[in-house]
């Protein structure tokens, strides 16, 4: 009997002609790998959230924990602060620098205001 570890594709096919065992084992392995990863991330995420919410030793308090203490997590307030900061950054260009950068005015040529068309070369006598 050949060990499973030494089996190639052909011997796998002999022992599992419909592929059910391979499929079942593979699905189980994929699911279990990602489930273990899920628990790791989930546990780690909770740890991070808890540590972020905990007050700092030096007496400094994070914004999220402060909001939580006073009147629960106020998502709208956070959104408003975020929006205000964003607008401040985006609309900063509206403030004029107060430096005049206009050095020269170039008049566009137009035959309507052209001197050449306004004057005759030699005045005609009648």
């Amino acid at each position: 009997m050949v060990s499973v570890l030494q089996m190639g594709a052909e011997s796998i096919l002999k022992n599992d002609p419909y592929g059910l065992y391979v499929a079942l084992i593979s699905v189980t392995v994929v699911l279990s790998a990602l489930i273990v990863l899920f628990f790791l991330i989930w546990g780690f995420g909770r740890l991070m959230v808890r540590s972020a919410a905990a007050p700092r030793k030096e007496g400094k308090v994070s914004m999220s924990s402060m909001l939580k203490k006073e009147d629960g997590v106020n998502a709208e307030l956070i959104a408003a602060i975020g929006l205000a900061l964003k607008l401040d950054g985006v609309e900063r260009h509206d403030k004029e620098s107060e430096v005049i950068t206009l050095n020269k005015v170039a008049r566009v040529y137009s035959p309507w205001s052209s001197k050449i068309h306004g004057l005759t070369h030699e005045p005609s006598r009648r």
């Binding site: 592929g19 391979v22 899920f38």
Partner: peptide
């Protein structure tokens, strides 16, 4: 992280096709 499980579930297509390919006579 529970969305991880959705990614795992969608892989079922791979193994369904494996069974289908064997049924059609393809080597393993």
């Amino acid at each position: 992280p529970k969305l991880m499980l959705v990614g795992a579930a969608a892989q079922i297509g791979i193994f369904a096709a494996y069974i289908g390919a064997l049924a059609l006579g393809f080597p393993a």
